[in-house]
């Protein structure tokens, strides 16, 4: 009855039960920490459309939009003891040429122009950084297990990480383009959460995360600008 095999089994069974119970409690605790993210500024500051190739050996020419933007947001309330990282991203959204649907959550065209991984101090060691940047990052939160100040974002005339295009290759003079800020909270254990459209008890929705509509300019031509300069 009480052989060592049975004892081993019982111990292991008890261990897994406890682990899963603790994990469930931690995951559930997310619901009780209020989330009050806010956006101060989100606007496109400088927009360009250039012609380029998708990769070096391609003969196809496509139009690429380079959207510089300014962002001021406070996402510090998203950092709790169960936050492993915060993934913040800005998308550009525009309706299709047919122009039936506006820029709702299901905008017809949506592309990430900039994103950022903000690790919590407890997951700094996992970040993909060089030794110098890693040292700096770890020193920035020495002795802290949660560092909400990392959620405060201030970007001025930020260059986009990604130049975006469209499968048709056409993007110049596109009307009704908007920028939208999103976030994704990655927990240590539990459910992944994104910014939600409605208030859910303790979790407030991310308001003001949409920029004003703007129009992409015509393709920037080198010759044209040179002529202008010469004319002046």
């Amino acid at each position: 009855m009480y052989s060592s095999v049975v004892r081993l089994q019982n111990t292991f069974g008890y261990f897994t039960t406890v682990v899963f119970a603790v994990a469930a409690v931690i995951a559930f605790s997310d619901l009780f920490s209020p989330r009050t993210p806010s956006v101060g500024v989100l606007k496109a500051t400088n927009v360009q459309v250039v012609r380029g190739r998708p990769h070096y050996y391609s003969s196809k020419k496509e139009e690429y939009a380079i959207i510089k933007f300014s962002l001021d947001a406070d996402l510090s309330s998203l950092f709790t003891w169960n936050t492993k990282q915060l993934f913040v991203y800005v998308t550009a959204e525009w309706p299709s040429a047919g122009g039936s649907s506006g820029s709702g959550q299901n905008a017809t065209n949506q592309a990430v122009i900039w994103d950022s991984i903000i690790t919590a101090p407890s997951s700094d060691h996992l970040a993909n950084l060089g030794p110098v940047a890693m040292k700096k990052l770890r020193r920035s939160a020495e002795g802290k297990s949660i560092d909400p100040s990392r959620g405060k974002l201030t970007l001025k005339n930020q260059r986009p990480k990604y130049q975006i295009t469209h499968p048709s290759g056409k993007l110049a003079e596109q009307d009704d383009v908007v920028l939208r800020l999103h976030y994704n909270v990655q927990p240590w254990v539990g459910l992944l959460t994104w910014n939600q459209d409605v208030d859910l008890w303790n979790w407030k929705t991310l308001r003001n995360n949409l920029s004003k509509k703007f129009t992409l300019p015509a393709i920037k031509k080198k010759k044209a600008t040179e002529e202008k300069k010469a004319g002046k």
């Binding site: 017809t108 065209n109 949506q110 994103d115 991984i117 499968p167």
Partner: peptide, 21 residues
């Protein structure tokens, strides 16, 4: 991986993915 671009709606929407790292 994470979806970073989406063109169109419905089952024919074109999706592009990228790994965060």
């Amino acid at each position: 991986h994470r979806i970073v671009r989406k063109f169109g709606v419905g089952p024919e929407a074109k999706l592009l993915t990228k790994g965060d790292n």
